[in-house]
Amino acid sequence: MAAGRDAVVTHGLGKRFGSKVALADFDLTVAEGSVCGLLGPNGAGKTTAVRVLATLLRADTGRAEVAGFDVAREPGMVRRQIGLTGQQATVDDILTGRENLIMWGQLFHLGSRAAARRADELLEQFGLTDAADRRAKLYSGGMRRRLDIASSLVLAPRVFFLDEPTTGLDPRNRGEVWNALRKLVAGGTTVLMTTQYLDEADQLADQIVVLDGGRTVAEGTPSQLKSAIGGDRIDILLRDEADVPAATALLARITGAEPEVDAPLRRLSAPVQDRVAALTEVVRALDHGGLVAEDIGVRRPTLDEVFLRLTGRPAEPSTDGEPEAEKAGVAA
């Protein structure tokens, strides 16, 4: 794999379905060998973007290249470079795991013997050898997903698209799928995945693109996105609800910011600059004021918070991707 090349490049991609804008002026660059996570709520345009890139849908405007081929002009060439795992597992329930993979192998024109050999390799690689001759109907959700992913990898695609690969899976099965994906990435495959799960993007992606209403609202590495909304935060859990006003005033004074307060839950939270200094000062001030905290800690914001701040308020016109901590608030 040549380093430094771009596996996916789009310029001003736009797509409408009737009056609904699915994608608007969407630009994306994914470096070869990296993992890009497309993050966004339902209807943000993630699936549309993947479908355009996988040659399933034609964009109205703009252009897109995958592995160096134009998706609109050379769809046949693009199809030979990509793998696609859509939102539903396309596993054939009635066939066994092995039969599923052999069928895809034959459709990739491997010939029966090579298809069977490749099926065995993939079953091994995805930990499905023991279940190979059982019908897929009897597989767990995680096994189905792994079989589905294996089906897309019969020809080792250069670019692998995954549309919400772990939606509907329990945590253990999600972990299984993540492990499978990590191995794949280690082998050099470029991955473009959509997800609604922030921890998933956090776990797997080198680069995250947050979409809302068909537009990119933020872009960066997971840690860049987290720092972009204001760095570390201090969280306090009080013992008594009656102490909330006093603690809020205290926290506001020390941090110089308006704390987020959930009075019934006795929780307070505020951004801080210097984590250690702030923590010491807050603990001392609480103690001095006779306010008892059950828990107190400093942490980096989660991607969930990033996400809510970026997309949580549909009324606010999405600006050009620079989140503003002052205006941020938790959506209703």
Partner: peptide
């Protein structure tokens, strides 16, 4: 690893009749 063992994409670009029938 995948990149090593996986077969290369088939060399043809078009879909000749033979592939239409076998697919």
């Amino acid at each position: 690893m995948t990149a090593v063992t996986a077969p290369a994409p088939p060399p043809h670009a078009a879909s000749p009749l033979r592939w239409v029938l076998s697919d």
